[in-house]
Nucleic acid binder design. Sequence first.
DNA 1: TGGTTTGTTGACCGAACGGTCAAGCCGACG
DNA 2: CGTCGGCTTGACCGTTCGGTCAACAAACCA
Lengths: 194, 194
Amino acid sequence: MRRKLTPRGRERRAQLMTCAARLFAERGYHPTSVADIVAALGVGKGVFYWYFASKDELLTELLKASNHDLRKRQQHAIEGVDDPVHRIELGIRATLAWFAEHREYFAIIQFAATDETFAPVLARNREISIADTIRHLKDGIVDGRIADRDPELLAHAIHGVVAELTRHALIEGNVPIAEVAELCVAFSLEGLHA
Amino acid sequence: MRRKLTPRGRERRAQLMTCAARLFAERGYHPTSVADIVAALGVGKGVFYWYFASKDELLTELLKASNHDLRKRQQHAIEGVDDPVHRIELGIRATLAWFAEHREYFAIIQFAATDETFAPVLARNREISIADTIRHLKDGIVDGRIADRDPELLAHAIHGVVAELTRHALIEGNVPIAEVAELCVAFSLEGLHA
DNA sequence: TGGTTTGTTGACCGAACGGTCAAGCCGACG
DNA sequence: CGTCGGCTTGACCGTTCGGTCAACAAACCA
């Protein structure tokens, strides 16, 4: 594993992560070997282990980096908005927009959730995201704009809608993201109610 | 692989499926070897390949069987009920109740969704389930009880809520299923609206 | 220029995996 | 009792995988 990183090294590391993310998304984590990753980049196997201690570490880094990026996007989207309901709406839209631009990560995250080794990282990511949502929900409940139900469960419900509709839009295709975003927001705010 | 099955054989097959389901849920599909499965049952490796052509086939059978069982439960729950909104509610409750009794399958299904090999089976299962939901939604829209939005997207939204809240209740524990079922229904019908 | 650090190579290793098979077991039935 | 077919055994096979390492190249600085 590497000790220090020059600009050249940092680029290689990024290349490995991007390349691995693509392959993991296409074929799955276990079926993608380290040999596959380095072959796709046209370099020797040693390169991989110069930048990462193990295949597992690479995926962990991938999960942390992607979550960090998504969260930045969400925070930027709600910057300066006070209305809690509007914040939730903008958060939903930002999430969908981010996944539309980083399709690879959806499959990777979904896999990581099923593997004991990575579940903790993912659980932490989700915890943070849920906590963010809960904050807005509580504000909305205090204002009387949101139904007085368990904010934690409500937060999970919203996440569920967003996750499944994101999956539907990305993987089954043919559905414009914008339309899906509209429905995500409408359903979260009003449910099935006519 | 076997040709015919005596009652004794049918029981062994069921044992293998149950045992494998437990292990897949605990450790994941790839990390669980065929050797692990037969060892947990205290039998030789040949037994496995007498009943199943491959490890993949076993998982496919597991997915088909579980989906068949869940669907039976849903259909039984809405039997004789005409009101489409009520049918949706009962379907949601039946789904949560089924997963509460078959916790192993949640992780298995989630993994299968991430693997090219099994995605088709899973896609077919989901398609059927979505089609069921769409039917009730359309009835509700005609009656003016449900908002006139794309029924397919609405169906996915409901599935998303149910899936994520099921996961939350089963895996993160400490949340009574009954309470989660209430919120699933309430959120699906009314959203966040106060 | 020479020396140090950073980066790269690919043959190699031990372990583990999915899957096979010749051989043997056992209960049912003639 | 014999024998036949469903069932079981576990050593074994070929392959693949994650990971190592000695050797070497390139970049950088003194």
